[in-house]
Every structure is written in C-alpha cells, then in structure tokens.
Simulated assay, not measured.
Amino acid sequence: MMSKVYIVGAGPGDYELITIKGLKAIQEADVILYDRLINQELLDEAKEGVELVFCGKQPNHHALSQTTINHLLCKYALQGKTVTRLKGGDPFVFGRGGEEAEELAKRSIPFEIVPGVTSGIAAPAYAGIPVTHRDYSSSVAFISGVNKQGEDEEEYWERVVKSMDTLCIYMGVKKLPDICERLVKYGRSQKTPIALIQWGTTEQQKTVTGTIETIMTKAESIQNPAMIVVGDVVQLRDKLQWFESSIREECVEVRSDVG
C-alpha cells in the first residue's frame, strides 16, 4: 500500500521558477501539504480530487506543528497515496526538509527530494545583485538570522563575518539592529553596502539599499519575508537592477492603455 513522498522546493515566489520535476510532483500528487510562502497558483496545477493540507507557518505562529506535519506525511504515504510536501524556496535550505526526510527514513517510507531555487540566490538576482562577482566577491554564506538552540551567538557571528565576502541572511529583518552591530563588531566597515529585499521575485518585490551605518533609517518600510544581503556586490544593483524597473514599466503601460 505504501507510496512515495516528494519533498519539493517551490522556489522563491515567481510561479515560473518551479522546476519541471517539482511541477510533475504537484501534478501527480494525491495529497499536497503546502506552506504559506509558496505561490498559490502552483496549486492550480494539481489534479482533480487532490487533497490540499495547509501547513501555514508564519512568524511566531504555526498552523500545524512540525511534529504534526511529520505525522501526516507518514500517515498519507502508509495509506498508499502519493504525497507532495510543497515548501517555499529549497527544502534543504532553512526549510526543515531534512527533518521531514529523517522521519520518513525512520519509518522506511520511500521519499525523493526535489530541490528548488532558494531565495538567498533568487531575491538578490531579481534585485540586480549577484552574490558572487570576480571583482567584488569570491565567497558567499547563506545564514539564518536566528541561531540554532544552544549555539554561542558571538562565536557564530565572528566566524561568518570574518570568513565570507557576501552574506545572505534569512529571517533576519526583526534582528537587523543586532545584526548590524555584530557586523561592525567583527570587522565590517560602517560603509559596507547592505540591501533588504522584501517578497523577492514577486510583483510585490521591494528593495532598499544603504550601508550598515544608514540602513536602519530605510528599513522601516520592509517586513518579512525579506532577505538581507551584505557585501560589496550590493553596489552592482545601480547598474543591474532589472526586475522592479520592468514592473514599473508594465504598470505605466497598463495605465496608458486604460487612459
């Protein structure tokens, strides 16, 4: 009776950034367990009669606990149903996909990981910021603004700040003052460029840039979900921004047509 579970990265928000394999997993599923940050249009690709289960993780509130999600993945698979676990970004990059896969492996339930485009790469790209560049950055770290339990925060920040040219920080907007303080404490100049990218790759994308010294004066308009990018590569946005400019041009065209 047992079927397979697909743990799928839905990408960062742009509907078209789903992979072909991820799209097939949506189309073939009997049950889809999906998160808040996926593009809801992807669910339109599911077959008729599919069971949709909203897992709804939001800051400081989970509609379903991780334990409950793990249980449901196993329950549906043991009923012989094809299950797709649809997660924003990439399931193995701050997505708890590893925890879900561990539970399936423990129960000897077949599963497959379908990688997705993570927001740490896609959001900067849509903001015109390459995370590496031959003239600006030869290293990049994808880190969380929330430390794992029991980890020494000072040691953690000292290590990442001193070892990498570019930092892409997930889940860090609420801790931005602390992050800026630690960046300077462990060697970054106050003049280091920094960008905040809200709802990256979607039509709601909003980007503000500044330096460690000035970014707090511009950050009030930015809310989660948002990426923080730190490093000299942020300077390239002035030359390379393309997505938000194209959205503005489309809006102008629509208004002209209406007029």
Rank of each mutant, 00 (worst) to 15 (best):
S189L: 09
G13P: 12
T67R: 15
S119G: 03
N70F: 05
A127Y: 00
I26A: 04
A105C: 10
Q149A: 15
E253W: 02
I113R: 04
K47F: 00
Q79Y: 00
N70S: 12
T118K: 01
P124W: 11
R159Q: 13
I129K: 08
V229W: 00
I212H: 03
E213F: 14
A29M: 00
C74P: 00
V208K: 06
T192P: 09
E151G: 04
P91C: 08
N147E: 13
K239L: 12
Q58P: 02
S139D: 05
Y186H: 09
M227D: 01
F142K: 12
I179Q: 08
I7P: 01
I179D: 05
K75D: 05
K4S: 11
K81D: 13
S245P: 02
K174A: 13
G116P: 08
Q204G: 07
I121E: 08
I179N: 02
Q58V: 15
E41Y: 02
E41Q: 09
P130N: 06
Y136L: 14
A77L: 04
V233K: 00
G231Y: 03
N147K: 15
G80K: 10
G116K: 10
V173K: 13
P225R: 04
K75S: 10
G98F: 10
Q27L: 02
G49Q: 02
G231Q: 10
H61C: 12
E112S: 14
G172K: 04
A195S: 15
K148Y: 10
V160E: 02
R107D: 03
D238H: 12
T19C: 11
E51L: 11
R182F: 00
G172C: 00
S137M: 08
H71M: 15
C180H: 02
S65I: 10
S108A: 04
D90K: 09
G13D: 06
T132A: 09
V254Q: 14
L43A: 10
W157V: 03
I129P: 03
L236N: 00
G88M: 08
D152F: 07
G89T: 07
K24Q: 13
L17G: 01
T132M: 06
V146Y: 04
F92T: 12
Q190A: 15
P59G: 07
P59C: 12
E155D: 15
G22K: 12
I20W: 06
T211N: 03
G128T: 07
H61W: 06
A125H: 06
K218I: 00
F54C: 00
V140P: 07
Q149G: 13
D30M: 01
Q241G: 07
V254K: 15
K174S: 14
M2Y: 05
I129H: 06
Y170C: 00
S138G: 15
E153M: 12
K148N: 08
V258Q: 13
I32F: 01
S189G: 11
F243W: 13
V5P: 01
F111A: 04
G259S: 15
